[in-house]
Design a protein around this nucleic acid. Structure first.
Length: 425
RNA sequence: GGUGAGAUGGGUGAGUGGCUGAAACCAACAGUUUGCUAAACUGUCGUACUGGGAAACUGGUACCCCGGGUUCGAAUCCCGGUCUCACCGCCA
């Protein structure tokens, strides 16, 4: 959620930013409506505060009079208070309606893009920030997509998942399961080495947490919900990990706070099936190692660079061809100010697969989370950032496809000590 | 799941209707003293919204787990909920 104070003082910048997100002139009117509702709220609050202050004065006057035994004078004051209370009730409801309206409207406004975000409407308009400049892998004839390789080498089984659970729940087995575990350990080790504290969070969260990181209300349909206990299965570790610092004022000396977590992620992903989502390309349950940072506003973009470097180094070590995209205004997530996507080349499918999305949310998330720090005697919102490092399913898909040979699948050197073997055959 | 106790500021903990946004102590921060550290002393020391002010600062309101209620007045009384602790039951 945007800071109201930002809209008040930087209305022009907000409008320019929303234009990058392809807001029409009509849609932009939401800004004025927010400011109007806020003014109504403030006026009501000032009046209400004065009203309450007066009631309080009368109340203590009554106390003093009773002590002096002047009960007769009390009754007159009581009736004054009663009429104040009547007015207060009205003011309270005006204020409540207005502040709900502000909140409601504010929730419909996405984050203001960073000035480097390119204009554009679709993924085709994304900027290739760092292309892949080395040669692409070439496959032998008869190379297979990963879902065929999975069958051939018994790596994972989606049909079995259907039997146990339903579509989109892969069952990894044998060397596939081991590869999964190897990647998790590799990613966590690398993140620890880069200074991220390892967290093992709950896989279910309550409404407060889901709201604070922005999954509620707009992405409710994406999450699995356990009605009986009023809990949501996490769609990403970002939710529990970022919420660790919800409602807190952190010491400026602790910036940047860097955390990493491996979790399974659960996504309902309603309504998208077809050729592009075969195999592991899109599943309801997948493994992911996430990196999260809470940073000082002055250095959050420096930290974002650091996260890009970290993710790049993972892909370098895995010897996978990848490129980095700077997302355009139309493709960027609702809550993000700047997002870089990492895409890995999937040689058999001959397409780029998104394996990581690294974003700076600036204060958009922390405004909900209330993660703050002291800047002199002012309390300010911190910046939050996160990124995948990395999402496993698609990495597995690319590793399988790109490294297949007639003899079997050769894994990159860096994984050998984690798997205990070099080939899937 | 059952029974009992409890929830107050960063921590411990006082407070059972007005003088309490909240004692005291500890921690933290700033200063004085000291050759340095420590000790001692002095001061500061919650959050949100909001009025005034360029700012330093200052006025108001709300918040003592959450939501209702009683009352002129609630941290304090009443109702509902959540959570924590202890014991029992069950259990990886």
């Amino acid at each position: 959620m945007l800071e109201l104070s930002f809209l008040k003082t930087n209305k022009e910048r907000a409008i320019q930013g929303l234009k990058i997100r392809n807001f029409s002139d009509e849609a932009l009117q939401v800004i004025d409506r927010i400011l109007e509702a806020d003014e109504t709220r403030r006026n009501a609050q000032v009046e209400l505060d004065n009203n309450l202050a007066e009631s309080k004065r009368f109340a203590s006057e009554i106390g003093a009079l009773l002590k002096l035994g002047k009960a007769a004078e009390v009754e007159a004051i009581k009736s004054k208070v009663a009429s104040l209370k009547e007015q207060a009730k009205d003011l309270e409801s005006v204020m409540k309606v207005a502040s709900e309206q502000v909140e409601e409207l504010l929730l419909t406004v996405p984050n203001i893009p960073h000035h480097s975000v390119p204009p554009g409407k679709t993924p085709d308009d994304n900027e290739v920030f760092k292309p892949w400049e080395k040669p692409m892998p070439t496959l032998h004839s008869g190379a297979l997509p990963h879902w065929e390789l999975a069958k051939k080498y018994n790596i994972f089984d989606l049909d079995l998942g259907v039997k146990l659970t339903g579509a989109g729940f892969p069952v990894f087995r044998g060397k596939g399961a081991r590869l999964e575990r190897a990647l998790i350990n590799f990613f966590l080790d690398e993140a620890s080495r880069a200074g991220y504290e390892e967290i093992a969070p709950p896989l279910m969260v309550n409404k407060d947490s889901a709201r604070a990181t922005g999954q509620l209300p707009d992405k409710e349909g994406q999450m699995y919900y356990v009605e009986r206990d009023d809990l949501y299965l996490i769609p990403t570790a970002e939710v529990p990990v970022t919420n660790i610092y919800r409602d807190s004022i952190v010491d400026e000396k602790d910036f940047p706070i860097k955390m990493t977590a491996y979790t399974q992620c659960f996504r309902r992903e309603a309504g998208s099936y077809g050729a592009h989502v075969r195999g592991l390309n899109r599943v309801h349950q997948f493994d992911k190692v996430e990196i999260v940072q809470i940073a000082h506003p002055d250095s959050s973009y420096l930290q974002l660079d650091g996260m890009l470097t970290h993710v790049s180094s993972l892909l370098d070590k895995l010897e996978l061809p990848y490129r980095i995209l700077r997302l355009c205004g139309g493709d960027m997530g609702f809550t993000s100010a700047l997002t870089f996507d990492f895409e890995v080349w999937s040689a058999a499918q001959e397409r780029w697969l998104e394996v990581s999305s690294v974003s700076n949310f600036e204060t958009y998330q922390s405004n909900r989370l209330k993660v703050r720090f002291k800047d002199g005697n002012k309390t300010r919102l911190a910046h939050t950032l996160n990124g995948s490092a990395l999402a496993l399913a698609r990495i597995v898909a690319a590793l399988l496809e790109n490294n297949q040979t007639p003899e079997g699948i050769r894994l990159p050197k860096v994984l050998h000590s984690y798997t205990g073997w070099e080939m899937i055959d």
